[in-house]
Design a protein around this nucleic acid. Structure first.
Lengths: 144, 144
DNA sequence: ATAATCTAGAGTTAGTTTATCAACAATAGT
DNA sequence: ACTATTGTTGATAAACTAACTCTAGATTAT
């Protein structure tokens, strides 16, 4: 049940961008320094977030990164799904990336116990992360 | 945020043992067949669970495994912690295996945003798994 | 004895994580 | 146009982990 460094770094990077959003942009070096992230690894992460439509970038002197949306329009759940994949502990209970479990002895039967519990776990995790925006994150608490 | 096969198999194995607890014991082959688990891998898992004091075993002809405690005295949280380690997404919010995050720019400061959110996620996960016993698991729903 | 079974740990294979590097492309200021 | 600065991209790789697999040995019932 672990969060990868990739996602953690991604969240920290977006946090910095959220803090300066509307005022200025940040270069990868700025972000890396402020959050103690290896620059080259951060690059990859920012690129992934760019392809996913969360940040924009400008090259050259005075270039840098910026959020595309408002901080309250991006949830932590979205970010982690982009960087780490589905929130669900097992794919047969994922709502965004469902996959049938093939070897499970309960396939096609009404109720698999593992599926039941893990469904609840998934909901619990998503209940936190999908209701926590970058704005909440920067403020240090949800909804406000 | 993934559950390992090890933990999943462990849960499935304990489920089978819970179902027959008090009536009979099961051999690794029985469990492996019923739950489609590679028998050698299952062996390791059962051994770990034995060392952790959850199951007992008897060797030789007519040997097998049995739960030591009652199914309602074992929670899924315990099992997963034994097989996969702490439930917390990052170790600085674990209650059973806390470790200070060393590279975090917020160390020793009052509030790290990542820590705040992940603490809530940890509580959400533990809230499900630590209140779900093997008996609930076998019944297909909690507190039953 | 012997056959079934558990015990223990080393070895294997494949994939993931966490980077690092180098070459390239775009931009701003001169 | 030139040059320094910055982002873009893909290749590579060390370290680690997951998920088995194998081998050899110890224990027990019959």
């Amino acid at each position: 049940m672990k969060l990868s460094k990739k996602s953690e770094y991604g969240l920290r990077a977006l946090l910095e961008l959220a803090l300066v959003h509307g005022k200025t942009t940040l270069q990868r070096r700025d972000i890396a320094d402020r959050q103690h992230i290896p620059v080259e690894f951060l690059e990859q992460i920012l690129l992934t977030l760019k392809r996913a439509g969360l940040v924009s970038s400008r090259r050259g002197v005075n270039g840098g990164y910026d959020l595309i949306k408002q901080p309250n329009e991006i949830t932590l759940g979205q970010v982690i799904r982009i960087l780490d994949g589905p929130l669900a502990p097992i794919s047969c209970v994922s709502k965004t990336a469902y996959q049938k479990c093939n070897d499970c002895p309960y396939t096609n039967k009404p109720r698999c116990p593992v599926q039941q519990v893990m469904g609840k776990v998934r909901d619990a995790i998503a209940g936190v992360l999908d209701h926590y925006s970058l704005a909440d994150f920067a403020a240090g608490h949800p909804k406000g």
